Deep mutational scan, measured.
Amino acid sequence: RGITCLDHENEKVNMYCVSDDQLICALCKLVGRHRDHQVASLNDR
Rank of each mutant, 00 (worst) to 15 (best):
C25D: 00
A40G: 11
S19H: 14
Y16Q: 15
N14A: 11
L30N: 13
R45P: 12
D44W: 02
L30F: 11
D21A: 09
E11A: 06
R45C: 12
H37N: 03
R45W: 07
I24K: 08
D20A: 00
R35C: 08
I3K: 11
R33M: 10
N43M: 05
K12T: 09
R33T: 11
V31N: 15
E9Y: 10
I24P: 15
T4L: 03
C17R: 04
M15D: 11
I3M: 14
Y16P: 09
G2N: 15
C28M: 00
L27H: 10
R35G: 11
A26M: 03
H37I: 00
Q38M: 05
D20N: 02
A40F: 06
L42C: 15
N43V: 10
G2Y: 12
I3V: 06
V31C: 09
N10Q: 04
C25W: 00
Q38A: 08
V31Q: 15
R45L: 05
L30H: 11
I3Y: 13
G32E: 05
N14E: 14
L27T: 07
D7Y: 08
E11Y: 14
Q22R: 14
D36H: 07
C5V: 01
H8N: 04
T4Q: 04
Q22V: 11
Q22W: 02
V18F: 08
R35T: 06
K29L: 04
V39D: 04
G2Q: 06
L30C: 12
I3Q: 06
H8K: 01
D20G: 01
V31H: 14
R1Q: 13
R33V: 09
A40N: 09
G2H: 02
D7M: 05
C17N: 05
E11I: 03
V18M: 13
D21Y: 01
L30Y: 09
R35A: 13
H37V: 03
L6T: 15
K12W: 05
E11T: 05
D36C: 04
D21E: 10
Y16T: 03
L23Q: 14
A40W: 07
A26R: 12
R1L: 06
Q38W: 03
L42R: 09
L42S: 12
V13L: 09
D20R: 01
C28D: 02
N10H: 10
H8E: 02
H34W: 00
C28S: 01
L6K: 15
L23V: 12
V18I: 07
C5Q: 01
L6Q: 15
A40M: 05
N14V: 10
H37Q: 03
L23K: 15
